[in-house]
Amino acid sequence: MDNQVLSFSVSRPLHLHSARLLLTNNQIARSFTFQRHCTNVENLVESITGYDSRSWKQCAPKKGMLYFGPIKCVWAVLFALFVTLKTILQSKKKEPRNVSFDELVGVDATIKKIRHIIPILQGKSEAKKFGAELPDGLMLYGPQGTGKTTLVHALAREAGVSFFPISAHDMAKDDTGSIGIDTLFIEARAYSPSIVLIEDVDVIARKGRCESDPSLRQLDLEIESCNKDGSMVMVIVTPIKPETLDSASMRSCRFFKKVHMGLPDEDSRRKITGVHLNMVAREEDKEAICNLVASRTHGLVWDDIKSIAVDSKIFALSRGDDHVTMDDVLNALGMLNDSDD
């Protein structure tokens, strides 16, 4: 059987620096190399596949080619496709929600505290001119339902950077443990500048949790070192109360910039009601409806107000009307009060 030549390059999204495949023919081990054609993400596949990148860089046969039969050519191509597919499927990179700061209501003060991060992530010249540095991290804390996650999505969208959201609940359930966390940060550094959002970090970092937890120790280590190699990775955690975090286990968070997202005030509740009911309330009723909801919803969060708006629309539809009236809103408020009892 005639020998054939295989020589090809692998480009993004595989991101291989190089990869060595061992083939055996008549008990003789041979190897060939997939040559690199990528940016600075060569460590990504090493972490996902478990192959040592140092072994990838070993010399292949002369001129990077190996002569072998057509069947082995097919296996080589299948191997490359398998690694490519595995890399894509295990990627933690996501698209942020299609929301901007301008669309967020009642959080102007909070936006003002974090807006300066955008030009730093973007590497704008004015940020460099004034020596502005990326904070060690951001701790965005406050009650559930106040819009912390939505605000971070808007920040990623405004900055136009790669986004890596993950829930601490998933970390706690993830069988890969510290390996999964290591992979997450390797990919985030590879796509620098980027934002890593860790939601509900209280789940794994609350006081009383065992400090020997490998996932927690790996997370703390990655946060501390994520920007030391010249990368720009902004880590954002969203606990409910920062004092519930175990300072011994999460030493890296001690230097985070802390920003509070509190319950919406009356004016904010009035604005968000207008956003939800603007298209379905009659013009002459809008102001009265917004004032009513704002005055009756002290201590409630955005999700509660959204529920009131949804229930109001349902009551209107049940009457066969396309417009929400004051009575519909009162019925919706009554349902909310009944559910609290």
Rank of each mutant, 00 (worst) to 15 (best):
N227Y: 09
D341A: 14
S91N: 05
A316R: 02
S212T: 12
R157S: 11
L89C: 15
N331E: 10
F68W: 15
L6W: 09
V301S: 05
Q58T: 10
S252E: 07
S252W: 02
Q218Y: 06
K228S: 12
K241A: 15
P96E: 01
F79P: 00
P242T: 06
M1K: 14
V259D: 04
L121H: 00
K313T: 04
V201M: 13
A132S: 13
E283Q: 11
M326G: 09
P119W: 07
C59H: 14
K306I: 12
K93D: 08
G299I: 06
R189N: 04
I28P: 05
N25V: 14
S53R: 11
R189T: 04
R36S: 13
S212C: 11
V196L: 05
H260N: 14
L197Q: 01
I114G: 01
K148T: 10
V74M: 10
D52K: 02
K228E: 10
T297S: 07
S252K: 00
E266A: 11
P70F: 09
S192Y: 06
I289V: 02
L300G: 02
F256T: 03
S91C: 01
G274L: 08
H17I: 10
T149Q: 09
I272K: 11
R115H: 06
P264D: 06
V152Y: 03
L81T: 03
L23M: 15
E243G: 10
T149K: 08
K148L: 09
L121F: 01
S178H: 03
G180T: 04
D220K: 07
S225G: 06
L81R: 00
H153V: 00
D322S: 10
D175P: 03
H298G: 11
G274S: 01
L300Q: 03
F164N: 06
L21A: 09
I223D: 05
D2S: 14
K112W: 01
F82D: 07
S47P: 06
K112G: 02
H260C: 14
L277N: 09
E243Y: 06
Q58S: 04
D170V: 11
K306P: 00
S312V: 08
V99C: 01
A132R: 13
T110K: 02
K113D: 12
A109F: 08
S47I: 14
G137I: 00
H298N: 13
A281M: 02
K173D: 14
G145R: 01
S178R: 06
L14D: 01
A205S: 11
A109Y: 09
G142Q: 00
P70A: 14
D52N: 09
S231Q: 00
A156I: 06
W75D: 15
Q122N: 03
F34T: 00
R20P: 09
T49M: 05
E224H: 10
L221N: 12
L263D: 08
T87F: 13
V293A: 10
E224L: 12
K112Y: 07
M139R: 02
F255T: 14
H169P: 09
T244M: 11
I71E: 15
F255Y: 12
T33V: 11
F34R: 07
L85G: 10
G145F: 03
E133F: 05
K207C: 05
I111Q: 05
A159N: 00
A127W: 11
S225V: 02
S31E: 07
